[in-house]
């Protein structure tokens, strides 16, 4: 993600000029850069996932109180982290796009949204799988689960709005407003849900019931978190490249790329 930041800062000076035809130049330079970065994140993602899964399933010891079922947190916790980090990143790119009027940042946030939504879904799904043996129910209206569910709704709302608007520029900026208003609301929602949950005291089992973690568990978790990061970055870069090609299909640089591709296949 730092890579696109670099591309952005490179093109900002050009924007201050009166003619900003140069804005087309930016995806043009970012496209090959993203292409080079994808394997740099993709392969580590694969290796880290294999190592992380090996540690979590075969090396890490069985938990004294929760048994084997605790192992799902090796996926659940990184997924929950990513779901929140990606929403923030999305809101960040939307803000950048609204302030500097840069198309690439809107494309970034649109590329982030599906990955964020999938992580949110994974976090909910694994939470339910973990909840059944631990709490005895697939779904408990726990504060964290509930906020995660609402986060999923926020992702879905953003994606639905962007998809419903035909004009790409309106879609970009309307989506940005939703993402930013949502980002302001996330802490309020989290607070209100926690408040609501503590008052009702239904199934008051806290998710944070593992006070001290064995260090190998922690290592496994961290490796899985890194894998999740690397996977997200590479997948988002692949998607942003696809979005770029689609959006800029009438521009010269895409035409050149296609021409090159045709040439090389001959």
């Amino acid at each position: 993600m730092t890579s696109s930041g670099k591309a952005l800062s490179e093109k900002l000076p050009e924007f201050s000029g009166g003619i900003n035809w140069f804005k087309y130049a930016s995806p043009q330079t970012f496209y090959p850069l993203a292409g080079r970065l994808i394997p740099l994140f993709g392969w580590p993602a694969l290796v880290l996932t294999v190592v992380g899964l090996y540690i979590s399933f075969f090396v890490a010891p069985t938990d004294a109180t929760q048994g084997e079922s605790y192992r799902i947190i090796f996926i659940h916790v990184p997924a929950a982290w990513m779901s929140m980090v990606i929403y923030l990143a999305m809101a960040f790119w939307c803000a950048v796009g609204l302030i500097f009027n840069t198309r690439l940042s809107f494309m970034m946030s649109q590329a982030l949204a599906p990955t964020g939504a999938i992580w949110t879904f994974v976090a909910l799904w694994t939470g339910a799988l973990w909840g059944k043996p631990t709490w005895g129910a697939w779904w408990v209206w726990d504060a964290r689960l509930t906020s995660e569910l609402i986060l999923l709704f926020l992702y879905l709302g953003y994606m639905a709005l962007v998809a419903a608007i035909d004009d790409p520029r309106r879609a970009d900026r309307a989506g940005a407003v939703v993402a930013l208003v949502g980002a302001i609301n996330v802490p309020i929602i989290y607070f209100s849900v926690t408040w609501w949950n503590t008052l009702h005291q239904g199934a008051s089992v806290s998710v944070t019931s593992a006070p001290k973690m064995a260090s190998i568990m922690l290592t496994g978790m961290l490796i899985m978190a890194l894998a999740a990061w690397a996977y997200s970055v590479s997948v988002v870069l692949v998607r942003v490249r696809a979005i770029m090609l689609e959006r800029e299909r009438n521009s010269d640089w895409v035409a050149d790329r296609v021409a090159q591709l045709v040439e090389s296949h001959r």
Binding site: I150, F153, L154, L156, G157, A160, L161, A164, V178, V181, G182, N185, I188, I189, F191, S192, V193, W195, W196
Partner: peptide, 17 residues
């Protein structure tokens, strides 16, 4: 329907309080 999808999550705190 889109409006509902966008706005309902934002209504959560108000509903709760």
């Amino acid at each position: 329907v889109l409006l509902a999808l966008l706005i309902l999550p934002l209504y959560v705190p108000i509903l709760i309080f």
